[in-house]
Write a protein that binds this DNA or RNA. Structure first.
Length: 853
RNA sequence: GCCCCUGUGGCGGAACUGGCAUACGCGUAGCGUUCAGAACGCUAUCCCGUAAGGGUUAGAGGUUCAAAUCCUCUCAGGGGCACCA
């Protein structure tokens, strides 16, 4: 027999929605009265409705976030837990292609399916504020944001070799290239020269980096962002070219090794290579090399194991500014055109890549740093710095200068800036972060709201002087609606399918009125998701048509209190979304109001949930081990699946889904159901009061720390005691503690709590409510710290640090008393026979350790 | 190659700030209930040993009265970055 979870879950789902118990009142929030006095914005990354439906991994993430939200609601916060769909973009379009459907029609199907599933899992979503990124009412404002970026110089066009996925037939942002492969389809990414729209995220590199120190995020996410931004401090140094006016500017983080620079390398794309071609004696050879290098994909060029290639520019010599020596110049593809100045000084003795290259091309290797190594002799915890003779021929670490003229003996850190000064170099900072590529040559996305007028371009007119001919679509014409295009398949020509739709792209120039052309590329999906959370609270606002977010509501509800999501977005979504908020703040378009977090940071607290795997392996469609939550909900109920998912392991760690283990939770919920039928036993409970108090404390703390697994184990322990001493009061407390985890059964039993003689009146059907108010709006149980304090505790007796015995003693026990008590124990006496106590360690309230010999 | 995380019974995992290792659950075994099974209940369940006792947190070493926890090295698994000068 099992309890009727199907009936219960359906009933309460409908009841919650009808009574809007999870809807905060945004209007009241503005007036600082009513329910929204303590707003708590509990946000979870919204899903891509791309695949065959909601994945159990999505459910894992949503439930984990919901438990926290329900907990905060019961603690008296006005919790806002929105839901929506990130339905625009490549993932949804690729899915439509796969099943041979049109993305515009498929979106409606997926939406229905996802929302139905999301309703079944028992989350306290505020359904009234749902949004979908493909809704014109939404992407109107995505386009508006693009225009704000454009007007304020944060969006620009540039022709550049960009990442191109031959399978998705579109360009990709650097962040979407994973190990040389397309993030979405794993095809090898190649380079293509195209003119594209970019956002100047680089302008925020320093702020994005600096603010990381002041936000409470999972450490590994912060590290990933820090490394992605990739700040390095160094110097720019000019090398003159012999018999020429030209100079070669290099960026180096190790100016201290300048005396060891024995050659230079230009990237094949470097401008200088062709501008001095008449001086190059072997130009044919060089040209051939450059051609080959450009044809290679980025991935081929950057493979670690690959042997270095390059070609000397014969007839060209550069002068090392430190020692005035003539050194050869090479073109080689191990130097990237996109980082630093696209040229390097090569110091083979102190850089592994240069070392490898120098060996192959038989170039001189001059050591200029003598290593200083921290050595750690065995058995000592503190290291000593000493000079160690390093046999290896290449040392990339710090040290002391040698073979460097008057700098000999100087520590490298100091020498860096001294040598920079000597050669008139400039201290500079470089970032690894590059522009955010926005354009996509696809169909299913928000059209980039720009218009290009050739006539105006010729006369140099345009919204921005540096981009003649380009105009932002006037506000009254937004949204630029994505038309229904029958053949939406990507073309692979470098143009979006919209470029074939004359009705779409032909438009009158907003300035001169002549025929102009709309931008036909759409924007990156990550732009859709870079601001969705700003819209949620304002979806139902009276001003929703005329502004993207209501300033009053925004001030009240932001920044987000807790953001939860997957770690796979460390450098994608989570970087873009911070950039967008910081930029919009600077442009005075967004204001979160006073906050302890750095100004404009949208998520002062972020927690990454773990990955749910299946029997040791990642769930994937190709392995066929994807778990569909529907079957489990049907078989065991949403409550059981929710609790099982959370019981597996700590939420932030992720867990292993195994079919058999869910039975433990099923049994537990059965027992909860049965318990409500038991007769009350009044006596005997008093001695258990302290356990109740401790349980409340532990569960409260565990939820606060997202340690749902241990919170559930506490509930399991507690029910054993309740079974022994059934009692209505304590059962009520128990149900409240259970409510965030298993909201349906908790609500059902709460509504039935009525009779005095039994915990539940077994005759009534549940319609005659014991409690009229939802348990989810009840107050979270408080523990009484006074009642937790015990006047007695178990004193651990150790001998030489090993546990030997324990005694129940008074909390006031002194060290002297403890010592006397310890030696008087029978067990301990045996241990002490023939031994002498050399020392006693006493930790009050805990233990006594007798050191004997 | 660099950076980060993890390593505890047959399994998922507990263990506060260094102080009783293995909570809770799964699985397994025995007993009970049952015509029988399922389900349920009770008991047992890290290893060696009849016991007293000893050993054990991937491995080795160290710090400490005391180490799963701190330090060093090695091994294994997972993740991120990847010719970034």
């Amino acid at each position: 027999m099992s309890y009727p979870f199907q009936k219960i879950e359906k009933k309460w789902q409908a009841c919650w929605e009808k009574n809007k118990i999870y809807e905060p009142d945004f209007k009241k929030a503005c007036l600082l009265i009513g329910r929204a006095e303590k707003p708590f914005y509990n946000l979870m990354m919204f899903p891509y409705p791309s695949a065959e439906g909601l994945h159990v991994g999505n459910m894992y993430a949503f439930v984990g976030s919901d438990i926290y939200g329900r907990f905060k609601r019961m603690q008296g916060y006005d919790v806002f837990e929105p839901i929506g769909l990130d339905g625009f973009g490549i993932h949804s379009e690729n899915y439509a292609l796969k099943i041979k459907a049109h993305p515009m029609e498929q979106a409606k199907v997926s939406e229905k399916r996802f929302y139905k599933q999301l309703q079944m899992i028992g989350n306290g979503f505020a359904w009234d504020e749902h949004l979908e990124t493909y809704d014109p009412e939404y992407y109107k404002w995505t386009q508006w944001i693009f225009i704000q970026m454009f007007r304020n110089g944060l969006a620009y066009r540039k022709k550049q070799a960009v990442n191109w996925c031959p399978s998705c037939k579109t360009v990709l942002a650097d962040e979407q290239v994973v190990g040389g492969e397309c993030e979405r389809c794993s095809s090898k990414v190649i380079k293509k020269e195209l003119e594209q729209w970019f956002f100047k995220i680089t302008e925020y590199a320093e702020q994005l980096l600096k603010n990381l120190e002041k936000i409470d995020w999972s450490e590994k996410i912060k590290i990933a962002q820090k490394e992605w931004i990739g700040k390095s401090e160094g110097a720019e140094i000019d090398f003159t070219v012999k018999d020429s006016e030209e100079k070669i500017k290099v960026f180096t983080t190790r100016p201290d090794t300048l005396f060891g620079a024995t050659y230079m390398v230009l990237s094949p794309e470097h401008k200088l290579v062709s501008s001095i071609k008449y001086q190059v004696l072997n130009w044919d050879e060089v040209q051939e090399y450059i051609k080959k290098a450009k044809a290679k994909s980025d991935f081929e060029r950057t493979e670690w194991d690959k042997e270095k290639t390059g070609v000397e520019l014969k007839g060209i010599k550069a002068i090392n500014p430190a020692n005035k020596k003539e050194i050869p110049v090479f073109a080689a593809d191990y130097v990237l055109s996109t980082y630093g100045t696209g040229a390097i000084m090569a110091v083979p003795a102190h850089d592994e890549r240069d070392f490898e290259f120098a060996k192959k091309f038989k170039l001189p290797i001059i050591k200029v740093i003598s290593p200083l190594v921290i050595s750690n002799p065995l058995g000592s915890s503190q290291g000593t710095i000493e000079r160690v003779a390093i046999e290896s021929e290449c040392w990339a670490g710090e040290g002391e200068l040698i073979n460097s003229d008057r700098f000999n003996g100087m520590p490298s850190e100091k020498a860096k800036w001294e040598i920079t000064k000597l050669v008139n170099g400039k201290k500079t900072i470089q970032y690894h972060l590059r522009g955010w590529l926005i354009s996509r040559q696809r169909y299913w996305g928000a059209p980039i709201p720009m218009i290009y007028c050739e006539t105006c371009a010729k006369s140099g007119k345009g919204d921005k002087p540096e981009m003649p001919g380009w105009y932002a679509t006037p506000g009254k014409d937004l949204p630029v609606v994505l038309p229904y295009v029958k053949d939406f398949r990507p073309k692979g020509t470098g143009e979006s399918p919209l470029a074939a739709d004359k009705k779409f792209y032909e438009v009158k120039c907003p300035e001169c009125g002549k025929t102009a052309r709309r931008e036909t590329d759409v924007s990156d999906t990550f732009l859709d998701s870079a601001w969705y959370y700003l819209r949620y609270p304002s979806v139902k606002s009276e001003t929703a048509d005329s502004e993207p977010w209501n300033p009053e509501i925004t001030k009240k509800w932001f920044p987000v209190n807790l953001y939860t999501g997957g770690a796979e977005h460390s450098v994608l979504h989570l970087l873009y979304v911070r950039f967008a908020a910081l930029a919009l703040h600077d442009l005075k378009l967004l204001d979160f109001g006073p906050s302890e977090a750095p100004k404009g940071e949208p998520f002062p607290k972020f927690r990454a949930h773990g990955l749910l795997i299946k029997e040791g392996a990642k769930m994937s469609k190709s392995k066929g081990n994807v778990v569909n939550p529907d079957e489990y909900i049907k078989k065991f109920g949403a409550d059981a699946l929710r609790m099982y998912l959370m019981f597996l392991a700590p939420f932030e760690q992720g867990g292993d889904f195994r079919d058999e283990a869910i039975m433990g939770i099923v049994r537990f919920l059965e027992r909860v159901w049965e318990l409500s039928d038991k007769k009350e036993v009044k006596d005997g409970w008093k001695t258990k009061e302290i356990i109740l108090q401790k349980t409340i404390k532990k569960i409260t703390e565990d939820i606060e720390n997202l340690k749902y697994n241990t919170a559930i184990s506490e509930l399991m322990k507690f029910i054993k005691i309740l079974e022994e001493y059934p009692d209505k009061n304590n059962f009520e407390i128990f149900l409240k503690l259970l409510a965030p985890f298993a909201p349906f059964i908790a609500e059902e039993l709460w509504s039935r709590l009525n009779s005095k003689s039994r915990i539940r009146d077994s005759k009534e059907s549940g319609e005659k409510l014991g409690h009229k108010k939802s348990i989810h709006l009840e107050k979270w149980p408080q523990y009484n710290p006074q009642l937790i304090k015990e006047d007695k505790f178990e004193l651990i007796i150790q001998i030489n640090g090993k546990f030997r015995d324990k005694v129940l003693v008074s909390r006031e026990l002194t060290e002297k008393e403890a010592g006397e008590l310890a030696v008087s124990q029978e067990k301990i006496k045996n241990w002490l026979k023939g031994k002498k106590i050399a020392k006693t360690i006493f930790v009050a309230g805990k233990l006594i350790n007798l050191v004997v010999n």
